[in-house]
Amino acid sequence: MLALLIHAGSDRYVIDAHGIVEVVPSVPLRAVPSAPVALAGMLEYRGQTIPVVDLCRLLGGAPCRARLTSRITVCDLDTKGQLAAQGPSAGRRIGVLAEGVTRLVEVDPDAAGAVDGPTTADVPALGRLVPFEDGLVQLVRVKDLIPDTLYAELTSGNAAASETPS
C-alpha cells in the first residue's frame, strides 16, 4: 500500500495515498472560534472551504511547528482515488496538518508484526500499527478525524453554495 509518511510530536504516522487529493504548503488558516482545539482552522482549497485538523495538537499536544515540511494533506472523505482535476466540489474533503510531510512510502498493513493500535475514545482515527524502517508507524483513518455532525456544521455553507446553482 502506498502511503504518505507524516510526523506528529515524536511519532510517525501514515495516510493511505488513495484518499489523498493533493499535498499543499501550510498557509495561514482562518480560525474557527469556539471550535475544538485540534481544529486548526478553515482552508480555501480551489474554491472549496474545508476544515483542517492539526494532527500534532490532536495526538501530541503542542501545535505543529511552522516549518517548510509542515504541510497540509488534502484528503477525500467519501470517494477514494479521485483525480484532483475532476473539480473542486467533487465531495467532502478535509485537510490534515502535520510535520515532516516529505515521503511516500510502501507499507503493508497486513505484514508480520502489524497489530491493531490501542484505540481511545478521544482519538478514534488511529488504526493499525505497522512495522516500518526500525520502528512502527500507525495508520490514520482520515474520515474519523472529525465527527460527521461537526463536519456538517463547519461546511454547511458549502452545501448551501453547491445547492444554489442547481
Partner: peptide, 14 residues
C-alpha cells in the same frame, strides 16, 4: 521539489 515529487507520486499512484 519535495512537495512536487510527493504530489506527482500521488497522481502517479492514481
Amino acid at each position: 521539489t519535495n512537495l512536487l515529487s510527493v504530489n506527482a507520486a500521488i497522481e502517479a499512484e492514481k
